[in-house]
Amino acid sequence: MSRRRPDTTDAPGRPCPCGKGGAYAECCAPLHRGTRSASSAEELMRSRYSAFAVGDAAYVKQSWHPSTRPRELDLDPAMRWTGLEILSTTGGTAFHTEGTVEFRASYRHGGATGSLHEKSRFTRHEGRWTYVDGDVEG
């Protein structure tokens, strides 16, 4: 699989892929650049989705818990993430050390469309939210 160059430009007004409605420059870009940390498991989930959407494999890998982080991570350059829907969350706030986020992410790959439905687990590691793993639903 080839590596995809991140498209992390902060063009004014460029919408954030995470779907919260703000501009990428103020939403997920600061997390991708490391100038701000996610305040919740949901925010980390959204920033990871955005990292997949812009091709930022380094952020995806860095935000993965060290115990489950893959050695190599190549993003498919043909994959286009087209939408994120958060279905439910448990825990994952400033008052928790663990949380889950259930989501559906839509994509286009070649001529096909589809979606990924996952219940992801997050935990704090060294004070920061990290992705541990997830169960892919039907």
Rank of each mutant, 00 (worst) to 15 (best):
T68C: 07
F122S: 03
V54Y: 07
V60G: 13
V60F: 06
A41T: 00
R4Y: 07
D7L: 13
S2E: 07
T97V: 08
E26D: 12
S115E: 07
R108N: 08
M1Y: 04
A41L: 01
Y131C: 12
L31E: 10
F52W: 03
T9C: 03
A29L: 15
P17H: 09
G91D: 09
T9V: 01
A112V: 02
S115V: 05
A29S: 15
R3W: 14
G110L: 03
S67V: 02
D7S: 14
G92I: 01
F122N: 09
E137L: 12
G19E: 05
R14K: 08
Y59R: 13
S40G: 11
V132Q: 12
S106V: 01
A58G: 07
G13P: 00
G92E: 07
E85H: 13
H109Y: 04
H32M: 02
T90R: 14
R36P: 02
S47C: 04
W81M: 06
C16T: 00
G114N: 05
S115F: 13
L87Y: 10
A78G: 10
K119Q: 13
L31W: 05
A57N: 11
D7E: 11
H109N: 12
T9H: 13
T35P: 03
A94R: 13
V101I: 01
D135L: 08
G110C: 11
G92S: 15
R5M: 12
R128S: 09
E85T: 13
D135R: 11
P15C: 08
A94K: 15
T93N: 13
A29W: 10
M45N: 12
D133S: 13
R4F: 00
A58Q: 08
E85Y: 10
L116R: 15
R36K: 14
P12G: 04
C16P: 01
T97G: 14
S63E: 05
G83W: 08
P70K: 10
P77G: 11
S63G: 07
E26V: 08
G111C: 10
A38P: 09
H96E: 11
G114D: 06
F122M: 08
R14P: 00
S63A: 11
S39I: 05
A25I: 04
A78F: 01
D10S: 11
S120A: 14
C16W: 03
L84C: 01
K20P: 00
